[in-house]
Amino acid sequence: MNKTAEQYWKANIRLVSILLVIWFACSFLFGIILVEPLNTIKIGGVGLGFWFAQNGSIYTFLVLIYVYTKRMNALDVEFDVHED
């Protein structure tokens, strides 16, 4: 693997790791592990933990894939590995 391909892959791994940490936080951490303390915070008539478990995590997943697609497409161009 040449220098740029190696850097491209490193940048990719860094991006994916950050996004997966958020993926874990919005579902497993907020929706299951910390659900009781978060439920003391209310938005409208819904506890925050309950909201993350049933709605918030899904919205976050959407944002994660959107950010990933945007960032990766930019990386492809930056490292000149994009498709024609």
């Binding site: 994916v16 996004l19 997966l20 993926w23 579902s27 929706g31 299951i32 659900v35 309950f50 478990a53 049933q54 709605n55 995590s57 899904i58 997943f61 994660l64 894939i65 990933y68 697609t69």
Partner: peptide, 25 residues
């Protein structure tokens, strides 16, 4: 969801969160 309430969140998160893994990995 109607009969398990909060407990049924496993289906909501589980059947959507997999798409993050699919897209990224």
């Amino acid at each position: 969801i109607a009969f398990n309430g909060y407990g049924a969140s496993v289906f909501l998160m589980g059947w959507t969160g997999g798409y993050v893994l699919l897209a990224l990995l």
